[in-house]
Design a protein around this nucleic acid. Structure first.
Lengths: 260, 260
DNA sequence: ATAAAACATATAATACTACAAATACCAGCC
DNA sequence: GGCTGGTATTTGTAGTATTATATGTTTTAT
């Protein structure tokens, strides 16, 4: 008779297979498991994690569904090349933020936001229903009430942006909101480390809101561009360290590296 | 140069759990299984599909990983609300294209492309490595050689756009390329039904290419805007039927409907 | 009579075993 | 050398048993 290991669930309300997928996913994103590399056999992996093969296989299936790995008989389970990973999956993105390339990914998210959200604001200005406008305004007012530099205000800031994306009526932009939501964890971490640099431009948020309420697509778009530009400058300033400001070239270099 | 047609996703060689996930996923996207609804128990479902509970559970795990369902003990497996679905997952998107809202989703994809790809072209003009530029050019030349209105040319058209997104160096835009790749199946279907309307503006593609090669971000962006605008007009013209051109209002109405 | 506690039940979660299928690898043959 | 077939290894599938947990019911104590 073998001793049964009792998995600790103190900190995790997650299911076991979910925890395993989380572990392996982070290992892949961190680079501990490189693309092309073959994972240990299901039996070995299961023993390593102290779980049955059934549970382990369910974890692998989750990773496969997100494009991280691919299983073939006789070969084993292989880590797929990076360009096959579904970075737009909230879980994958959140795992990427614990890698040593977290900063690069955060910059890439920021870059995408600067493309999508202004257009989203314009669409919201065209299409938002009264209820949706109300939600956007509620988020803004909560942010206003929360004051600056608090976890509260970061949360309501996020709500503000998500509400705008929802108001576009485009389901893909809504999904993109979940991506942003995952990425925001990194921003929070930054804002904790560098509280002085965290600026939530309330006035710019207000302008975006007003122009959406007014049904002014171009105005809303322009305001959102400025808003995100400021946020991006904050991030780059932090990542470049206190000595120098990040240049566009530096940002480009970072992205090249991520791409590999 | 020899063209190798790569059928990127073969449905025939899929594993059983993949086929089940495909089936149930389509049912959910089609609306046969409504959000909030609880699926039959694992045992019943397994019997229904003629597979063991093990296989069925792996399929469910895949769907859960894509945000379509959520399993809880005693409750069962429930379809999550639509705004939780990860529409940016290539599989989910491909399933959506068999629903009776396929046209709406296709329009939404088109809308997102018009936002992302011009920005992508600008980034590519800034950052593309020589090898990446070569790939873009190769796709263009293949498209040119293939002639119009053929499946070949649609395929190389897609390659052209994917190569540009890859050249941005932004991993999220690369993933977005896979989304577009999934959505293109719908465009192909349309172009088969309405061959006369299928226009692949070769001159505009050439301009985009040249400006990327020249390192002209703004020029590339502008050209891509025009290119996608033309494509969008084609789609709307088809979807609106032969009688009238789709108006912006019509497009908005469609998107509202998708949003629910 | 009411509220709390114990119990029953149904379902997903996990575990374990056995067998099937696929295929890379190797030996042997022509 | 190249082909052919066998073999071993790994994932794929099946079936059953056990455990955990949420829900509903009954019992019990006040």
């Amino acid at each position: 008779m073998q001793v049964k290991r009792k998995p600790s669930r103190m900190f995790s309300q997650r299911s076991i297979h979910g925890r395993i997928a989380h572990e392996i996913g982070q290992q892949i994103l961190r680079g501990d498991l490189q693309p092309g590399q073959i994972l240990p056999s299901e039996i070995d992996l299961g023993e390593g994690f102290g779980v049955s093969r059934t549970v382990l296989r369910e974890a692998i299936k989750v990773l496969a569904a997100k494009g991280l790995v691919e299983s073939r008989t006789k070969i084993g389970t292989r880590v797929k090349p990076r360009d096959q990973w579904n970075m737009l999956d909230p879980d994958v993105l959140s795992w990427s933020l614990v890698s040593n390339e977290a900063e690069d990914y955060a910059l890439a998210v920021s870059e995408m936001r600067r493309v999508l959200e202004p257009a989203g604001a314009a669409l919201a200005a065209q299409r938002a229903t009264p209820a949706q406008v109300t939600r956007i305004r509620a988020a803004f007012e909560a942010m206003e009430a929360a004051g600056r530099n608090t976890e509260e205000s970061v949360y309501h800031d996020l709500r503000f942006h998500l509400a705008i994306l929802e108001a576009t009526g485009n389901p893909f932009l809504v999904s993109m909101g979940h991506v942003i939501e995952s990425a925001i964890a990194f921003n929070i971490k930054l804002s904790v480390e560098f509280p002085a640099l965290r600026i939530q431009s309330l006035p710019l948020h207000r302008i975006v809101l007003e122009r959406i309420e007014k049904g002014d697509p171009r105005g809303a778009q322009a305001a959102m561009v400025k808003l995100l530009q400021e946020a991006q400058m904050d991030i780059e300033r932090i990542l470049a360290g206190p000595r120098k400001r990040a240049t566009r070239a530096a940002s480009t270099r970072r992205l090249r590296k991520v791409q590999e």
